[in-house]
């Protein structure tokens, strides 16, 4: 079965995320756009994932708990999990490896926590927009240990991508899927043989504003429409 997806969406917990990126705004916009499943992937945090999953149940859209980690090498990767418990376990590891610095909202933006009804329930005051001290390889192996999916993010971009920062995707890691932003840029990488063609390539929005969320353009095929089956495929 084809399911239409956008597995890279930020809430207002990401300092660069718009304040309109609340759980209900996101799931309802995704629903309006005709998506079947989305993932919530804030920078180095999963704290809004649970509220988004609950809001998704009300709206009728599948929400996968996730994080966009920034590794020691300044590489961004999506870490998607089967359940909120695994996401929180991973979040603890990442929080312990972040520098003990406070966010400066006037420079980076607010980091807002919501409940499933979009009420503001707190502010995260850690500096999230920075590198954890977990390497790209360690992050991949940790996510796999938690039975999650590790997806190098926007590999076609010239910032925070594994290919730009580390030259190429290490081939000794259990990576099946990679994310791209623009087909033309992905094609350039494929044509120059910088990336092997045997990955699964998924397009995501990296939405920081509601209008960025994808329409029905990126899909995967699954046997069953469940979070577990989607993670298996990825």
């Amino acid at each position: 079965m084809h399911i239409y997806i956008d597995f890279h969406i930020h809430t207002a917990l990401s300092p660069c995320g718009d304040s309109d990126m609340t759980p209900n705004n996101i799931v309802n916009m995704a629903k309006l756009k005709g998506l079947d499943a989305i993932a919530i992937t804030d920078h180095n945090s999963c704290e809004n994932a649970k509220s988004c999953i609950e809001a998704g149940k009300t709206a009728g859209i599948l929400v996968i708990p996730g994080m966009e980690i920034q590794t020691r090498e300044d590489v961004h990767a999506l870490c998607l999990f089967r359940n909120i418990e695994s996401a929180m376990t991973f979040q603890d590891l990442v929080y312990n490896s972040l520098p003990q610095l406070k966010n400066r909202p006037n420079v980076f933006g607010e980091q807002i926590l919501f409940d499933c009804r979009d009420n503001v329930i707190g502010i995260n005051d850690r500096l999230l927009l920075t590198s954890s001290n977990i390497s790209f390889n360690e992050a991949c192996n940790l996510v796999k240990k938690l039975n999650g999916a590790f997806i190098p993010a926007h590999i076609d971009r010239n910032s925070f991508s594994v290919i730009y920062n580390l030259g190429f995707i290490p081939d000794n890691l259990p990576i099946k899927t990679v994310e791209y932003s623009k087909y033309e840029d992905l094609k350039r990488l494929k044509d120059s043989k910088i990336i092997k063609p045997d990955y699964r390539f998924i397009k995501s929005s990296d939405a920081h504003y509601l209008w960025d969320i994808l329409e029905r353009e990126s899909f995967i095929d699954v046997d069953e429409f469940t979070v577990s089956n989607i993670i298996d495929v990825l």
């Binding site: 090498e73 390497s135 790209f136 390889n137 580390l166 030259g167 190429f168 290490p170």
Partner: peptide, 9 residues
């Protein structure tokens, strides 16, 4: 950078 890719490069 201390990732193993530096050796490949």
């Amino acid at each position: 950078q201390v990732h193993p890719n530096i050796i490949a490069v």
